[in-house]
């Protein structure tokens, strides 16, 4: 019972950095979309910055996911070695 509780606590602790990966990608794209749209409306260039914004958002979202997974595993591997 005690060890089960410990295991549960440990998994909760490890899940932390990965918890919001899904939402982070979506929000990054939506953020880029609305940021681009706002800029477009300001300087009348629809749809230039809208498209750039979506791609920038996707790039930022993918990069943060890659970094979280790859970098975390790398530091863990270094520690294990």
């Amino acid at each position: 019972m005690k060890s089960n509780k410990k295991k549960w606590q440990q998994s909760i602790r490890q899940i932390g950095p990965y918890f919001d990966l899904g939402l982070r990608l979506t929000v990054a794209m939506v953020f880029g979309l609305f940021g681009g749209l706002w800029l477009d409306r300001k300087i009348h260039t629809i749809p230039l910055f809208l498209i750039i914004g979506i791609f920038a958002g996707a790039l930022s979202g993918f990069w943060s996911i890659y970094k979280t997974i790859y970098m975390k595993n790398k530091t863990k591997d270094d520690r294990d070695r």
Binding site: D20, R24, V27, A28, F31, G32, A56, G57, L59, S60, G61, W63, S64
Partner: peptide, 9 residues
């Protein structure tokens, strides 16, 4: 990408 990620998270 990093600065944008900082705001989006």
């Amino acid at each position: 990408a990093e600065v944008m990620g900082l705001f989006t998270k």
